[in-house]
Computed example of a mutant assay.
Amino acid sequence: MQGGSSGIGYGLKYQARCISDVKADTDYTSFLTGTLSLKEENEVHLLRLSSGGSELVCEGLFSHPDEIWDLASCPFDQRIFSTVFSTGESFGAAIWQIPELYGQLSSPQLELIASLDAHVGKINCVLWWPSGRCDKLISMDEQNIFLWNLDCSKKSAEVISKDSAGMLHSLSGGAWSPHDVNAVAATGESSVQFWDLRTMKKVNSIERAHVRGVDYNPKREHIFITAEDESGIHIWDLRKAKVPVQSLPGHTHWTWSVKCNPEYDGLILSAGTDSAVNLWYASSSSTDEKALESPVASTRQRVNLLLNSYTDYEDSVYGLAWSSREPWVFASLSYDGRVVIESVKPFVPRLK
């Protein structure tokens, strides 16, 4: 199915690539996004969906000194988030806090909690454990994975351990398993590596080139999703990760990002440089009890489907985020700084 957009839009002042659900905000459907301007001072926008769901409101606008290449909201404190940034010559990463009374301040400033300054190479991402309160953080540069201990009260971050992926593996990003606080996946030029944080050693890998985005299925422990440049979307069972168990065609150009729905098993979003966001239902095995319980499965008879393609964009779409509070809602961000909020309910009518 092809479709334009009936979503709610919001325009950033500058170009942008990253957007994050504010999972810890249980009162509002909220997102954080940051800009990527080389010449101007950059901005972090705190966006909230109005109570009627008809308007996207900027609740907070904060200056950020450098280009924001990665942004992630803390899953247990809605005022805390991380950024990976570039000064044009070097990369850095930091943990920030939104001031408590930001709505009453004329020009609120972000409070720096800690700098993740142990990296020498280009930092690519900072990961928070998605399943609850955890005082650990992961950061990755092109060669190394760092595990940090974060103490927000003392405004400090200390390296617990680190290891190198090796000179032949240029890391670009990753995902932290919601099922296991010790399991993390890291994407490289020719493979996806799976690491055990207790030993900081690689324990498994998927040999695939040009993987741009990955995600764990939060409802099924062993299911893992990859998005690849030109070969689409692949779904893997990590217990037998030699070949994918399912494949989806992806996008007409590079498939850049992929996100599993936090509540509804089988619903997947993907975004690409073809200026589109695709909503998929990827069926599970008919013998899988969780699949039989899925409202999506009962609607779609457990077949692989492109439920909708959102095509009302004028630039590549790099940012995707499902809402944890309203899991039928998602935010997308195109490179020209356009945020769009959509509901998938029209395409999956049995979602409650």
Rank of each mutant, 00 (worst) to 15 (best):
M1C: 05
Q2V: 09
G3R: 11
G11H: 14
L12D: 03
R17T: 14
I19H: 08
S20V: 04
D21Y: 00
D25R: 05
G34M: 04
L36D: 07
L38D: 11
L38C: 01
N42W: 02
E43C: 01
H45L: 02
L46Q: 02
L47H: 01
S50L: 04
S50V: 11
S51P: 02
G52I: 05
G53Q: 06
S54G: 02
G60H: 02
G60K: 04
F62Q: 03
F62H: 03
H64V: 13
H64Y: 12
P65R: 07
E67K: 10
D70S: 14
A72I: 14
S73V: 09
S73I: 10
C74R: 02
C74M: 11
P75M: 03
D77K: 11
Q78N: 12
S82K: 03
S82P: 04
T83V: 11
F85M: 06
S86T: 15
A93R: 02
A94V: 15
E100F: 06
E100S: 12
G103A: 12
S106I: 12
S106Q: 14
S107M: 06
A114S: 14
A114E: 14
H119P: 08
I123M: 12
I123P: 03
I123N: 01
V126F: 04
L127V: 06
W129Y: 15
P130C: 05
G132L: 07
C134M: 02
D135C: 08
S139R: 05
Q143E: 12
N144H: 13
N149K: 14
L150C: 07
D151P: 13
C152S: 13
C152H: 06
S153V: 06
S156G: 01
S161I: 10
D163R: 07
S164E: 08
G166L: 07
L168F: 10
L171N: 06
G174W: 00
A175C: 11
S177N: 04
S177E: 03
H179G: 02
N182C: 09
V184M: 03
A186V: 14
T187R: 11
E189H: 10
V192C: 05
T199N: 01
M200C: 08
M200R: 05
K202T: 12
N204S: 12
I206C: 03
H210Y: 09
V211A: 00
P218Q: 05
R220Y: 07
I223H: 04
T226L: 00
S231P: 00
I235E: 02
R239E: 09
P244S: 06
V245Y: 00
S247P: 00
S247V: 13
G250N: 03
H253N: 14
T255S: 13
W256E: 07
N261P: 10
P262Y: 01
D265I: 15
I268L: 14
A271D: 12
A271M: 10
T273L: 12
S275E: 13
A276V: 13
A282E: 06
S285G: 13
D288K: 09
K290T: 10
K290V: 05
S294W: 08
P295H: 03
A297T: 15
A297L: 00
S298H: 04
T299Q: 12
R302I: 06
L307T: 13
L307R: 10
Y310I: 13
Y310R: 04
D312C: 03
Y313C: 11
E314S: 13
S323K: 05
S324V: 08
R325T: 08
W328V: 08
D336C: 09
R338G: 01
E342M: 02
E342S: 09
P346H: 08
K352V: 11
